[in-house]
Write a protein that binds this DNA or RNA. Structure first.
Length: 467
RNA sequence: GACCCCAUCGUCUAGUGGUUAGGACACCGCCCUCUCAAGGCGGGAACAGGGGUUCAAAUCCCCUUGGGGUCGCCA
């Protein structure tokens, strides 16, 4: 059985890079009817916070990637980790190191000065004298001192590290007794039965260290897939400076979770020429072995295009639900279907969609001056007045087609084109020269309010001329 | 600096020795049209450079260049 996991550390928000590896892990598990586990890596008590952990979980929930089983919190498992530290100590596969931080710094600096890669020199590896007073030891693992460590990465292929210039006896437990990252990751992955580790390739050089631990404990090394980083549009590492990297920002900006997921799966992975993937298609088609080897730059326009696509195809009920997040509730509006059909193709985000809804539903408080100047010329006003009178004497109507028929009939009698009237109506209805098709807008607004809005505009114009 | 990874249009990518190097986003043009979009049609745009291997190289090998990552008692 395939078991994958996502293991964020709660130092901030859920990053889109993290979401992508989570997506890949999720899909790979689901495709193989395996399990997808979630683990919170909160061993750094000073830097982690409960709020950050909750924020990550909330974002995760929004994306709809459901994890299996209980969420593991590493902060609750310190006693467990200690038993494995002790086991290695007892087996003489790890040892206490009494070197102080200051001494380490000195060593590091001299190595840097010699243009060497800084590494611990192993001075306490076989130490059995009396340690100096007042230094609480760290626990270091006995790593191999020569040869190579290699593994077959599912994305990169065969990766080989030379032990000599790469590995040292790294710390598995700090002087205060708490275990370190590489150690707990390995313990938890092994104990959880993780078979496939899919993570960012910034972890590539942690992998040989983790393999050392697997081997020291006599455990089976899992399959690794190191996926390339996401770069910003300039090709540099994506960071907070580049704006939207927090997954929840996408929700706030009006992106659909399925659009974000679709965007992310295509960043570094592809299936021929296909661009649009439903979650179901992702599940059946995804395979980590065709993840790209190279890093990919973040391209906001493609995401926007995908979001536009998903808004266009989203069931109306879902759209109405999503709009509520942006303080627009049209669930009880009699013309909600006309409204949605009129706007669906013109919004790139839900936020924009909500704005468009308000522009139609709210009575305009002011009018776009340039539009008024351009279209409400003396003749324009005359035509609008004529239309207003005809509208009043005709009496109420409701459907889009009724408004259309009535308007075309009016124009025909006056020997006018729709062009001569449409913009004026538009200004009366929404205050500007931009809106969906006017017949739909009239129908949505409703006869009474339509009459009122035209009247408003006419009296506004009269006031304007009197001054 | 050392080590590791990477390299096809501006961007995301297809391509696994023989293709007019394909698709998508963006851009430009045309059409549709009551505005703005959406949509339809069309266009420009790439194998980083240099050596090999081969009848044949975007595809295999080497070097150079460029980019990225890692070098913590952080994760």
């Amino acid at each position: 059985m395939i078991v994958t996991r996502f293991a964020p550390s709660p130092t901030g928000y859920l990053h889109i890079g993290g979401l992508r590896t989570a997506l890949y892990s999720f899909l790979w598990a689901r495709k193989n009817s395996g399990k997808f586990l979630l683990r919170i890596e909160d061993t750094d008590l000073a830097r982690n916070s409960k709020e950050a952990a909750e924020a990550i979980l909330e974002a995760f929930k929004w994306t709809g990637l459901a994890n299996d089983g209980e969420i593991l919190y590493q902060s609750e498992r310190f006693d467990l980790y200690k038993t494995y530290v002790k086991q290695l100590l007892d087996a003489n596969k790890a040892y206490k190191c009494y070197m102080s931080k200051e001494e380490l710094d000195v060593l590091r600096e001299s190595q840097m000065a010699n243009k060497e890669r800084p590494r611990y020199d192993g001075r306490y590896r076989d130490f059995n004298g009396t340690p100096s007073e007042g230094v609480e030891p760290v626990i270091r693992i006995k790593a191999p001192t020569e040869g190579q460590i290699s593994f077959k990465d599912g994305v990169k292929g065969e990766v080989v590290f030379n032990v000599k210039d790469m590995l040292d006896d790294f710390i598995i437990a700090r002087s205060d007794g708490t275990p370190t990252y590489n150690f707990v990751v390995t313990i938890d992955d092994a104990l959880s039965g993780i078979t496939d580790v899919i993570r960012g390739d910034d972890h590539l050089s942690n992998t040989p260290k983790q393999i050392v631990i697997y081997q020291a404990l006599g455990w089976k090394v899992p399959n690794f897939y190191h996926v390339p980083m996401i770069l910003n549009p300039e090709g540099k590492k994506l960071s907070k400076r580049d704006g939207a990297v927090d997954v929840m920002d996408y929700k706030k900006e009006g992106y659909l979770a399925e659009a974000l997921l679709n965007f992310l799966i295509r960043l570094g992975w592809s299936h021929g020429d296909q661009e649009i993937f439903s979650l179901e298609e992702m599940r059946t088609l995804f395979d980590p072995s065709n993840i790209n080897k190279s890093a990919s730059a973040y391209n906001a326009e493609k995401l926007l295009w995908l979001n536009t696509h998903y808004i266009k195809t989203l069931p109306s009920e879902r759209l109405i639900e999503e709009l509520k997040y942006f303080d627009v509730d049209i669930s009880l509006h009699v013309k909600k279907d006309v409204l949605i059909d009129a706007l669906r193709d013109r919004a790139k985000t839900l936020k924009e969609f909500a704005l468009h809804v308000r522009q139609i539903l709210d009575t305009p408080q002011n009018y776009d001056e340039k539009a008024v100047e351009k279209f409400l010329t003396p003749q324009g006003i005359e035509i609008l007045k004529g239309y207003f009178e005809a509208l009043v004497s005709n009496g109420a109507m409701s459907e889009t087609s009724e408004f259309e028929l009535f308007t075309k009939d009016f124009l025909e009698k006056k020997e006018l084109k729709l062009k001569d009237l449409a913009q004026s109506i538009r200004i009366a209805m929404v205050g500007s020269a931009v809106s969906p098709s006017i017949f739909e807008v009239l129908s949505i607004i409703g006869y009474q309010e339509v009459v009122k809005r035209i009247e408003n505009l006419i009296s506004y114009l009269r006031r304007d001329y009197e001054q």
